[in-house]
Nucleic acid binder design. Structure first.
Length: 154
DNA sequence: GCCAACGTTGGC
DNA sequence: GCCAACGTTGGC
């Protein structure tokens, strides 16, 4: 069982958008970074915990709890010729990009990034490191536990 | 909108 | 394999 922080731009898919989808589940398509892809393809398992994080917005931070609800499979958008995620080097036989499905567990009282930064217990969190741009980062079990125990409010 | 940080590309 | 140029991310 692993834990992850997964960034989503709320203008693209917010926590409320996720909650409105069938099964409250979304395919985490569009990841075009090898490290993030490898996390999904090689490490994510059904039931892994995820923090749903709003990024690139007025107030970034954690908006909800989610779970990984599928193992990785080829990202359909890499084959969409006119789509923004099209990859001419990907083929059906050798897809380059993969995604998992992510299911909402619950929306929580928003935890701003500034609040996360106030806690020394989280200062080593990968997502909070200077210059970090990865859209998917692992969380230490201790970080996950700290956030769920001390910061998450319904 | 700015810009620091980082990843990717491609010529050599 | 190096590295400059370029593109992207994402907080502010």
């Amino acid at each position: 069982m692993r834990y992850w922080l997964m960034k989503s731009e709320p203008g693209d898919c917010s926590i409320d958008d996720l909650g409105a989808l069938p099964g409250q589940t979304v395919a985490w398509y569009g990841v075009r970074n090898y490290q993030a892809r490898n996390f999904m393809r090689d490490q994510m398992r059904i039931g892994d915990g995820a923090l749903f994080y709003h990024s690139n917005c007025a107030v970034p931070g954690i908006a909800g709890i989610a779970r990984v609800s599928s193992t990785a499979y080829p990202d359909a958008t890499q084959f969409e010729r006119n789509g923004k995620y099209f990859d001419p080097k990907a083929t059906q036989e050798t897809p380059r990009w993969f995604n998992v499905d992510v299911q909402l567990v619950k929306k929580i009282k928003f935890i701003p990034l500034a609040e996360l930064r106030r806690h020394p217990q989280l200062e080593r969190m990968r997502a909070l490191q200077r210059g970090n741009r990865l859209s998917i980062t692992p969380l230490d079990p201790a970080e996950w536990k700290f956030i769920l125990t001390h910061l998450v409010r319904d």
